[in-house]
């Protein structure tokens, strides 16, 4: 993952509360086996009209919202399905940060793992941003603030590990693998206990899988 330190953009606003991941990318597009190219399907059923043309009522289709990389969304953004296709689609569409007073757990987790900044703000600040679409913001990941055009700052908190990974482009799978010895030791110890607790020995597990070789 590329390190991310700063994002500078105007904001686009989707004020609806509870925008679920089915709305971000409808389930019928989940038959893909790739993660690339989902931007054109982002918000599909909201964004296009029946004839395939742009829906003028969709806020992100407004001329002033085009090209905005910072999305201010209504409370509880990303609720529902755990599909990581949602952050993939948003990123490919051009959104690099979502600002919200509350973001659904799984979505936030998925977003941060893909370098999409999912930032939770105070309600008052969130409300203010909802009411002021199109303002220029700079998000500073290292110092954890959002710079407003008038020089004011909104502070935010990212989970420290997520922030560290964003700033340094840390590969989390690589991080887990670095703890391979610890994990191996845990599994060895647990296997003995598992045999007692869950009633199956590792050998039995192996025989159950006989004939299937990786």
């Amino acid at each position: 993952m590329k390190p991310i330190t700063r994002i500078h953009s105007r904001t686009a606003v989707l004020a609806d509360e509870n925008i679920d991941t089915d709305r971000i990318i409808p389930a019928r597009f989940l038959t893909t086996t790739e993660r690339a190219g989902l931007g054109k399907l982002c918000f599909n059923d909201w964004r296009y009209q029946a004839d395939g043309s742009d829906n003028p009522a969709f806020p992100l289709n407004q001329p002033q919202a085009r090209g905005c990389a910072i999305l201010v969304a209504g409370r509880n953004f990303g609720c529902g399905s755990s599909r990581e296709h949602a952050p993939w689609a948003l990123l490919d569409y051009g959104i690099q940060a979502v600002l919200c007073s509350e973001i659904a757990d799984i979505f936030r987790n998925n977003a941060l793992k893909n370098g999409l900044l999912a930032i939770v703000l105070d309600e008052a600040e969130h409300r203010w941003l909802l009411e002021h679409p199109g303002i220029e913001l700079t998000i500073d990941v290292r110092e954890q603030y959002i710079a407003l055009p008038d020089g004011g700052r909104i502070r935010f908190q990212l989970e420290p590990f997520a922030r560290h990974c964003l700033l340094n482009g840390v590969d989390q799978l690589g991080y887990l693998q670095q703890h391979g010895d610890l994990i191996d030791a845990f599994i060895r110890e647990r296997e003995d206990r598992e045999a007692a607790i869950h009633g199956r020995t590792p050998q039995q597990d192996q025989s159950r899988l006989a004939g299937v070789t990786p």
Partner: peptide
């Protein structure tokens, strides 16, 4: 609990997850 696809990869490869 449910996880995203990146985490599916983590569990496939390490049988572990990073969790708060």
């Amino acid at each position: 609990f449910g996880i995203g696809t990146t985490e599916v990869g983590h569990v496939l490869a390490t049988q572990c997850l990073l969790q708060r």
